[in-house]
Write a protein that binds this DNA or RNA. Structure first.
Lengths: 126, 126
DNA sequence: CATTACGTTTACGTTAACGTAAAGTATATG
DNA sequence: CATATACTTTACGTTAACGTAAACGTAATG
């Protein structure tokens, strides 16, 4: 009794179109099971989709997000491979931390403008 | 003796091409002075460019970033306009804060993978 | 059981954000 | 002062990420 989803379910849940979901599959970022011709998505598919959309909100390309999703798999391989993998993780992290700093600066700036605006508005209330 | 920049200066500083900078101007996001036919950028132009690139890193479109840059200007207008403005600021802030949460989740996940990887590597050192 | 809702494939269209190339002009330098 | 370097405009090309439409099959429902 594992929970499954139709393409419409997921489109509704995430506020996207079915075309978008099919596009992701077409490009190899999703591979749902089929019931005859109908697509059947499980929890894993749904998680992948969520990750894709999260990446998108942060300005990652589909390829970049797919890379990250793949990283989330079990870290296997020999020593060398693990070391290479760790390097990749570190790079991603650096990139994401830069984004975080960018975000903090922007939020700060925005707060500054907001305060100015509040001050200007306060004049009207005196 | 105000500092100015050529298009090449800015391209070098920010690691982009001159084509990109001209494109931003073509679309109305930059409007440098001219010395004859040559473009001359000042500190304000440079700041705008920096903001554009920052927005880009965070997945904002040029239009969205231009909107934000415009917000940074002096918050003028009457009471009604100020209130509308405040609403817009609030919306942007909500959006940016969502991005921040997305980032935190991703960084967390990444750290999880990293730790697993470290553990696997530790096996080799025993 | 008709019709409405949801699903399918195929295929061409669209938009943002530049890349690339050509063809010419101005400026810096050995 | 020749030539290399940086700048200019104009214009067509490219890619990612879908949108839109046609033409059709299947499932749910009043």
């Amino acid at each position: 009794m594992k929970k499954t989803y139709t393409i419409g379910d997921l489109a509704n849940e995430f506020g996207i179109t079915t075309r978008t979901i099919r596009f992701y599959e077409e490009k190899g970022y999703l591979s749902p099971k089929r019931n005859g011709t109908r697509r059947i998505y499980n929890a894993t598919d749904r998680t992948s989709l969520r990750l894709i959309l999260r990446g998108k909100r942060l300005g990652l390309s589909l390829d970049e997000t797919a890379d990250m999703i793949q990283m989330y798999g079990s870290p296997g391989g020999n020593r060398k491979q693990l070391e290479i993998f760790l390097t990749r993780i570190g790079e991603k992290r650096t990139e994401l931390e830069r984004k975080r700093k960018d975000l903090e600066v922007m939020l700060n700036d925005l707060q500054g403008v907001e305060e100015k605006c509040q001050l200007a508005l306060a004049q009207y209330r005196k």
